[in-house]
Amino acid sequence: MSSRKKVLLKNKNSDYKLKVIILGDSGVGKTSLMNQYVNKKFSASYKATIGADFLTKEVLVDDRLVTMQIWDTAGQERFQSLGVAFYRGADCCVLVYDVNNQKSFETLDSWRDEFLIQASPRDADSFPFVVIGNKIDVDDGKRQVPQKRAMAFCQSKGSLPYFETSAKEAINVEQAFEVIARHALAQEEAEEYSGDFGASTIVDIGADADRDGCAC
């Protein structure tokens, strides 16, 4: 499946199209993070996301123009069966929790597992995840997840990059997404060099190349 996306994601305007998935419990601020990053706006009144929303942003990563295709998913568990339709071909997965909500931190692990099952990346161990603890603007007394604990978790999962952000006050959002873009790009390139010889993917590549009129 990943090879299929690769042909699709390369196009004439930018060097690369990178597919990023944002996951996490309902209400942790996924939509707000995405809109702060893409539109530089914050609104206190987004409707709950149903299925998944889609946004794009073009960025320069080391002089290469890449287009981030960001899928902002719904947090309610009932929608998890949809995952396969949205996760396939992802280059990076962002796990978001609310630092003021213990439970949203505890579910990160299952979000990660669920993603790996449904997206089935070629190499689960090296697939890039980035963890974001959001809503640090809320006053300190309400914080439930200490930074140390979050960092220990990231360490235990293979040194995942970790950011603490405020989508509301635009703290650390840009920095987090820059790292996300780099990791996604690295993943995309790694896939390109390592994966094209899998017998099962050859047919896919041929078919997609025909459709897109884009030689790979």
Partner: peptide, 20 residues
């Protein structure tokens, strides 16, 4: 051809009865 899947856009149409 452009690899848009129906579920990617119409799931919400069904789940929210086009209310969005």
């Amino acid at each position: 051809d452009v690899q848009v899947q129906f579920i990617q856009f119409s799931f919400r149409w069904m789940n929210c009865m086009l209310m969005r």
